[in-house]
Amino acid sequence: MTDRVPVLKIGDILLVSIQTDLEDQMVMDLQDDLSHRIVETNAKGVVIDISALEIVDSFVGRMLATNASISRILGAETIVVGMRPAVAMTLVELGLSLKGVRTALNLERGLRLLRRLTAAPADRA
């Protein structure tokens, strides 16, 4: 059994703070857990904090992108926060642009962005 990344509920937001070096199985479990929790809790937004991640490879990058798409279909916005500069530079060179994934510099800005996005959903095309 591998460890699971905790998914915390705060109001109508789900917070995921990744604190360990991710094994592929943990990445897949997280994707599963998140989609279920969004439906279960009727969450409007998901914040994924990756500030502790020393690397994001194509597997984790794909999870972040897929997760953003799944969440959107389930009615929740996803913001990825805290990416380290070295990780961002590496991702771009690797060829992953994380299209469709909203990002913010840190948790505080991510939450602010999420509040704005979920406050007026009708304004968005």
Binding site: E54, I55, V56, D57, S58, F59, R84, P85, A86, V87, M89, T90, E93, L94
Partner: peptide, 13 residues
């Protein structure tokens, strides 16, 4: 740090 990150990411792939 940037070189480390690139190398470790390549190793992961």
């Amino acid at each position: 740090l940037v070189h480390q990150t690139k190398l470790v990411t390549a190793a992961s792939e």
